[in-house]
Structures are given as structure tokens and as C-alpha cells.
């Protein structure tokens, strides 16, 4: 199993395509950082425009923590597309290249094979997130420094002490890892059904885009199905940045306002992953390899 995983990872990281995603993230993050570095004040004014009328918010709002949050908000919508690029290619790509024939005539059980493939896709996903974390969090902290964090949420403003932020990012990235693994599982599952990689990649992207739109639109009909869409649960990482307050409305360091939302969403996502991987194993074990 370990050998299989090594081989799969070797294949992933020897392919030029793999690095498209890393380059894309680097470019996106750099552009945003550059923009905020030069015109950050205007962005802050825009974000806080409603509040600026009644409140005077002073200090270094544009610090590394804030920039990272802004980056995650923008990028965690796009990263799934980059994950689809590899995950939805895992089986279909091998089928297309004809290498699946060679692989499956080797003395390796299909169960182990597909599990190794999925784990490799997961490792790729995690690497991508770690890279994102390095760029979005650590580089932002280097460029913009640290400080208290202000997050406008729907209906209220949250201020987090600088010392109370870092662990939230760890939580957020762990959650994002779960969310992105779900995306990988969707792409992976779809990759079983095609002998070219474009189909599953486009299908995965379409599913994510459509589901995200449904999750965002506030139309009563869609609201009913929202809780069942995995994209609705993928944004629960933001809950790490909401804080409980005491009876005097002072925030309590180290707390999260709705930990149950995080847990619930994490469970929903985990169920998706398990279901999709199980379905993948089921389908793959019975699949006639005709490619």
C-alpha cells in the first residue's frame, strides 16, 4: 500500500500539470498581496464603508491576518477548480493514456489501488493547501505584519486579538483541508466514468460552480436544498473567526461562537468523502477496463 502511494505521488509530482495549480495560487496570492500593499487603504474603506459612517476604526486594520482572511475568501472558491484538475484525472487520465491496463494487470488489488490513488489525490490537495497557507498566511504576515484582526460578518463586526488569531487559522486550514478533500472525492468519483480527463474535470468544476451558486442565492426554493449541498458546508471555516461574548458583550478569547456549525459541517463533509470513496471502490472493483 505504501509502495502504491509512493508510486502515485511520484506520478503526480512528476507531471507538469500538477504545478499549474501551485503556480496559479502563487500568482493569485501575489497579485492580491501586491494590490493590497499598494492600495490596501481603499480596499479597507470599501470593506468597512457602512461602518465608517458611525464608527471610527483606527489602527493597522490591514495586517497579515486580515490579508490572509481576504485571500482565503477569494481563493477558497477557486482552489476547488485546481483540485479538480488533478483529482478528476486520477483514473480517467490513466484510462486515456492507456496505462490503466498495465497497472491493473500487476498483482495489486483494485481496492488497494484505488485507495492509494485517492490518498495521493488527498496528499496533493493538502500540499496545495499548505502552499496556500504559506503564501496567504506566512508571507502576508511577513509583508503586512501582525495585529488585531477585524472581520465584518453578516450583521456584525468581530475583532480578534492578535494573540487569539493564529490557532483559528490552523482550524480554518484543517477545515479547508476537509472541504477540499470533499472536492477531490467528487472529482475522483467522476473520473471513474470516463476515458478522457476533460469530461470529469469539466463535470467536477460544473458541479462545484452550480452548487456554489445555489448555496449563495437566497431564493426560498434553493434555501430548502442548501443544507444538502456540500458547497454550503465548505465555507464553515469562517466560523472559526466568530467569537463568543460574555454578558457585557466583551469577547472571550479562545472561543468560537458556533462550534456546532463547524462540527456539523465537518461531519457532513466527512460523510460525503466516505460515501464517495466507498462508491468509487464499489464501482471500480466491478469496472471492466476497456480502455
Amino acid at each position: 500500500m505504501w509502495t502504491l502511494l509512493q508510486i502515485e505521488l511520484y506520478k503526480i509530482f512528476r507531471r507538469p500539470r500538477t504545478y499549474i495549480a501551485f503556480v496559479a495560487i502563487t500568482v493569485l496570492v501575489s497579485i492580491v498581496q501586491l494590490g493590497l500593499k499598494s492600495d490596501g487603504k481603499e480596499y479597507i474603506d470599501f470593506v468597512l464603508s457602512d461602518l465608517k459612517n458611525s464608527l471610527s476604526i483606527e489602527g493597522k486594520i490591514l495586517n497579515g491576518y486580515f490579508v490572509c482572511y481576504a485571500l482565503l475568501q477569494m481563493l477558497l472558491v477557486n482552489v476547488p477548480l485546481l483540485i479538480a484538475l488533478i483529482a478528476a484525472d486520477m483514473i480517467s487520465g490513466e484510462a486515456n493514456a492507456g496505462t490503466l491496463r498495465f497497472l491493473l494487470t500487476k498483482p495489486v488489488s483494485r481496492f488497494e489501488f484505488i485507495l492509494a490513488k485517492f490518498l495521493a489525490a488527498t496528499v496533493y490537495t493538502l500540499m496545495l493547501l499548505i502552499w496556500l497557507a504559506i503564501l496567504a498566511l506566512f508571507v502576508s504576515l511577513l509583508l503586512f505584519g501582525t495585529g488585531d484582526m477585524i472581520i465584518p460578518r453578516n450583521g456584525y463586526l468581530v475583532q480578534l486579538k492578535a494573540s487569539d488569531v493564529f490557532w483559528r487559522y490552523i482550524g480554518a486550514f484543517c477545515f479547508a483541508a476537509l472541504a477540499m478533500t470533499t472536492v477531490a472525492a467528487v472529482g475522483f468519483f467522476l473520473s471513474l466514468f470516463a476515458e478522457n480527463s476533460i469530461g470529469p474535470i469539466v463535470a467536477t468544476m460544473s458541479i462545484i460552480i452550480v452548487a456554489t451558486i445555489l448555496s449563495t442565492m437566497s431564493i426560498p426554493l434553493f434555501n430548502k436544498i442548501k443544507p444538502f449541498l456540500f458547497t454550503t458546508h465548505m465555507v464553515a471555516w469562517k466560523e472559526f473567526f466568530d467569537i463568543k461574548v460574555d454578558e457585557n458583550n466583551a469577547s472571550i478569547a479562545g472561543t468560537v461562537q458556533h462550534p456546532e456549525r463547524i462540527t456539523r459541517s465537518a461531519i457532513v463533509l466527512a460523510i460525503h468523502i466516505v460515501a464517495l470513496v466507498t462508491a468509487s471502490v464499489y464501482v471500480f472493483k466491478r469496472k471492466d477496463v476497456l480502455s
Binding site: 457602512d50 461602518l51 459612517n53 472558491v77 460578518r153 453578516n154 450583521g155 437566497s218
Partner: peptide
């Protein structure tokens, strides 16, 4: 008095229910 204060909106894509 905070009566006339405008409440913030989320930056983008807050899926949680409106208050």
C-alpha cells in the same frame, strides 16, 4: 445610541442565514 448605525454586511458569500 446605536440606533442609526448601519450594520456591516459580510464581505462576500456568507452563506449563514440572515439574522
Amino acid at each position: 445610541n446605536t440606533k442609526d448605525y448601519k450594520m456591516p454586511k459580510g464581505i462576500t458569500m456568507d452563506f449563514e442565514d440572515e439574522p
